[in-house]
């Protein structure tokens, strides 16, 4: 049978393969190469070794973007997961209207980043206007604006995953514990949290990568203003490519660094999950 199917390679696999090579594989390889060159268009690329990487790490904007992105990721990962877990706990109790609540909390997740960014731009500026400032007045406004936006977008999504995890806990486990005299906090700490660990890992990973790679929301909410103080890594790379002549090579080098950071996060995550699965 395998041989029989193999003859059909042009029908089954070739179209996807061509698209994959054109849209991803070839551009990826070319991106690695270009990160070692100086160029304004692909045709005039000149090999410069690690020059771009050295320049990238001595660029104040890039270091600021890395720091801002890290800070933002830590704060939003913590807030999103705590709120989402808390909501999931409430929504797995027998309360009227849980389905409706779930639907409402999840909905913002479907709205695209650009639209989300402008919705919150309007709201936050509407509030700040009363104090005579706007969101681009200071970096802290942009930072907390992004955190609020990200919470609004992702809490419902993470909540759904936590609910699925909580519903998998057998009820007799909780009952046995409370008969043995465990209080609510002890049940949470020694039963609920260990039992939903797989959901926690998934949610951590999703919130970390989504926060770290954020672009559309950042562009629409502050565009990096004031100055470039609220520009995250993705926006900084974009600005190098399309806003700063002669910086394309450095932008590409930053993109490679960005890729490596995201890949490391993914591998640590995968390794952690694998290790835990062995333990079980």
């Amino acid at each position: 049978m395998q041989k029989n199917i193999r003859k059909y390679f042009p029908v089954f696999a070739l179209p996807t393969l061509i698209a994959f090579v054109v849209a991803f594989l070839y551009p990826f390889a070319m991106g690695i190469y270009l990160s070692f060159t100086k160029f304004t268009t692909v045709e005039n690329a000149k090999f410069v070794g690690f020059d771009n990487y050295i320049q990238a790490f001595s660029d104040k904007d890039f270091l600021n973007a890395l720091w801002f992105t890290t800070k933002f990721t830590v704060v939003s990962v913590l807030t999103i997961n705590i709120f989402a877990f808390f909501l999931a706990m409430l929504l797995t109790k027998a309360i009227k209207g849980t389905n409706l609540f779930r639907s409402i909390f999840f909905m913002p997740n479907l709205i695209g980043g650009i639209v989300l960014g402008y919705i919150w731009n309007l709201l936050i500026n509407g509030v700040l206007n009363k104090y005579g400032v706007d969101i681009t007045f200071a970096a802290k406004y942009g930072f907390w604006g992004l955190v609020i936006l990200m919470n609004w977008q992702m809490i419902g999504y993470m909540m759904i995953i936590y609910i699925a995890g909580l519903q998998n806990i057998p009820t007799d486990l909780n009952e046995a514990a409370s008969i043995d005299g465990a209080n609510n906090f002890q049940i949470l700490r020694h039963i609920t949290i260990p039992m939903v660990m797989p959901s926690i890992t998934i949610c951590m990973f999703l919130t970390i990568t989504n926060s770290f790679k954020l672009f559309d929301q950042n562009l629409a909410l502050t565009k990096g203003a004031p100055g470039k103080q609220t520009a995250m890594v993705a926006l900084d790379i974009y600005n190098n490519f399309y806003g700063r002549i002669g910086w394309q090579g450095i932008g590409q080098a930053k993109a490679v660094v960005f890729f490596i950071i995201v890949a490391v996060i993914a591998f640590v995550q995968l390794w952690g999950t694998r290790r835990k699965e062995v333990e079980h």
Binding site: P27, G31, L34, F241, A255, F258, F259, V262
Partner: peptide
Amino acid sequence: VPFQMVMYTMTYT
């Protein structure tokens, strides 16, 4: 792989 990694070269291709 984040989009920014292939953004420029993909557009070129």
